[in-house]
Structure formats: C-alpha cells, structure tokens
Design a binder for these strands. Structure first.
Lengths: 216, 216
DNA sequence: TAGATTGTTAATCGATTAACAATC
DNA sequence: TAGATTGTTAATCGATTAACAATC
C-alpha cells in the first residue's frame, strides 16, 4: 500500500473493474489475470496492474487476481463497504429514470430522498420515496446522513441546489445539469451532462455529408 | 489552421465552450477573452487559447474572441452546421427522459427515430416519434441518414444493438448501458454510464464514517 | 522444473501550463 | 502610446506503456 496521491483517472476505472469482476463472480470464475481484464475492458494490462498496486498487493504472481478478494478490496477502496445514502434533486423525467436504477446499483449506494421545487410533484411517490420540497433539503440531508447528491434540475436552478447541498454538508455531487457548478474544493463534482457528450461525438462524423438522405 | 491530430480531451471541451458562448450570445455580449472563459468554465486560459488555435486564428490580440464568430466556427468544427440525425434505441425511462431533451439540444442534432424490443412499447409515441421494433433499425437508419445512435437498452442487449447500429453504417454511439461495447475502430463510442460516475464519487467520501446517521 | 503473471521501474507519450513576442 | 490579449514555444507535469526480475 502506497500513500501516493491517486489520480482521478485511476479512481474512475475502479468501478469499471468492479462491474466486470461482479460478472465473473456470478459466473463463479475464481481468478482473472490483468491480461484478460485488459482484453474485456479495452485497457492496457500494465495499467490495470499499476492501478491496483496503488492500493495493495492484491494479485498472485503466476496466478492472477482472486475474483472475490479483489471485489472485496475494491469495494473497500471505494467506501462501498458501508451503505452510502444519496439524495436526488429534481424529480423530472431524468430524475425518475435514475431513481429506477436504484435496483441496479449494487446495494451499498442508495437513493433515500427525492426533492423537487414544483408543488405538483411534492408529495407524490417515486420508487416508494415521497418527493419533498427543496426547502427541506438541508434538514433531511443532515437527518439521513446523506453523503452524495444527484442534480437533475434545469440548468438555471442547478447552482442554487448545489449551494444547498454544500450547506447541508454533502461530500460529492453528480451533476446532470449543463452548467459548471461552483463549489468549495472539498466537495467533489462529476459532470454527467450528456448533451456535451453527444455534441462532441458529432466531431467524429467526418466525410459524412454524402451520407445524409434526401439527396436524390 | 494546423493539421495535427486533435485529442479527444480537446474535442470534448468544444461543446462546453459552445454552451457558454451561446449564453453570452443571448445576453448580447459581443466579445470574450480566454481569461473570462477560463474563470467561468474552470479551465486554464492558455488551454482554451491552445484548444481554439488548433482550428484557426479565431481571436484578436488585445480584444479577445468575437462571440458570434466563435460560435459559428465551433459549430463548423463539430459538424453542427448541418442537421445530424440521431436514433434512440431503448424507450424505457432513461430513453424517454433523453428524448425530452430534444428540445434543449440546439436544433442541429435531432432524435428522428426511436426503437425498442418490447411489443408493448412498439407503436406508442415518444415526443411525436412512433416507436419502431428493433428489426427495423438497420433499414430506418439507412433511410433517414441517421449518423449517431444512443443506446439506452439493458446491458445484456447493448452489444447486439451496437452491432446492428454498426451494420447500418452509424458513425458514433453514445452508450448509456454499463458495458464495454466492441465496435470497429472507425465507429466512435462514448460511454455515458452514470453508475460508474456515481460509484467513483464514493471514493472521495473520506473521513465520512462518522457522518452516517443512526449511531446513537 | 517450465510457464504464467504479478508488482515495479524506467521509458515514452501526451496534455497542461507558463511565459512572452506580436499586435490590436 | 499604454493596456490588453492573442497565438505559440518551451517547460512542466502527469499518465500510459514496455520491460523484466521476482515468484507462484
């Protein structure tokens, strides 16, 4: 175990490893090599070994990695050996879609509160959770020990919601709104804005003008 | 204008610039400096100047960038000076949420077809588009000149859908399913899997065990 | 023992940032 | 002219990959 600073690029690959290891575990595969992981995940095997070695000596020379053991270790690294409570702010279509994924998220991360500004939404139930007004955000986040917030409100409300999440002592935010949020440095933000992703894909459509329809 | 290879990191920042420039344009701000862009977008001004300089000399020394002109140029770079047709595959909650964003996406990128495997969904309308069976995917993609596919089907169907999109001649895929898709190198893939994002956020919740509730 | 595969160092590659001459 | 800001080169920083001794 080193105590170097771990880069975000490394941290973001850990859940990818975890996801594939969970599949292997379901299939009762006992061990896996960095080479096989690399093939399946489109990553360089040396990179995978290096990523894992930041956190400990998890593998066995000549053998590879024990699947169950590695799952346990990665969960520990990601703080997923305890339940992590999540708040969802914005009960629109996207928010509802995400809350349905609650089931798919491995048990240890759970949406436990949903907030919205619209009176029409408040009091309704989303996946068995009653939608609360945003006024109650700070109080509820503190009361339930919520550590992560997901923002799915319109972009013009996103900063205000972020401010409240910060005021409530949240540790990290997943932001689906197309805005750059300003938060104190101790709060981690990941941008999950798919419009950016989608627009950038258009760049790679070279030579394509001749592919459009209606040219006859 | 250089003809160096542009890195993906640069390309992914272009839509971020574009989004902010569109805001400035609405407010009728005539010019903007790399310094101001950097402040608002949390980026280094030198990086912004360098990014833009890959594609041309868009700025004026002592003045900055003309907002309207830069918008026009970035749109051209991203191939957004023509309409780009998009197919959405998977009409579940997430797919429906995304299709609602059609309105928000600047006009030139448009979801023009929606597909699903479930008989119960086929024939229904999502944002005025009739959901078609996946069997019709290849034919429709070709007929409508669709260039980008968005995958929002369950993970176990994602590779099959990707194969069909590729067979139909698609140029790029935005993949929301939690799987690494295998496609030929000429097809561009962006992973938009938010479970990975969310799990990696947990890493940054250090010191937090004492924050959980129910410890009394 | 022979083959496989890790953990780690060194080499490479690429991306970000600083600095500044050019110039509006 | 003086101040501002670009475009670009050079310096720095960081991430990826190759290579290999250690060892199961």
């Amino acid at each position: 175990m080193k105590s170097e600073k771990i880069s975000d690029a490394v941290v973001r690959r850990l859940p990818v490893y975890l996801r594939f290891l969970n599949e292997l575990s379901l299939r009762e595969v006992p061990t896996v090599s960095s080479q096989e992981l690399g093939q399946k995940l489109d990553l360089n095997p040396a990179q995978i070994r290096k990523d894992l070695a930041y956190f400990g000596d998890f593998g066995r020379k000549g053998i590879g990695y024990d699947v169950s053991y590695l799952i346990e270790k990665i969960r520990q690294i990601l703080n997923l050996d305890q339940q992590i409570n999540v708040a969802l702010v914005g009960a629109g279509n996207l928010g509802q879609a995400l809350s349905n994924y609650n089931a798919y998220l491995k048990d240890n991360m759970k949406i436990v509160a949903v907030f919205d500004a619209a009176p029409s939404k408040i009091g309704s139930k989303i996946n068995n959770i009653t939608v609360q007004p945003i006024d109650e955000l700070v109080e509820t986040v503190k009361a339930l020990g919520i550590r992560i917030g997901i923002i799915t409100v319109p972009h013009f409300e996103a900063q205000r919601v972020a401010d409240q999440l910060v005021a409530a002592g949240i540790g990290a935010i997943l932001n689906f709104a197309p805005t750059i949020l300003k938060v104190p440095p101790e709060v981690r933000i990941h941008a999950a804005d798919f419009t950016t992703d989608l627009l950038s894909l258009a760049y790679y459509l070279h030579d394509g003008k001749e592919l459009t329809s209606n040219e006859s």
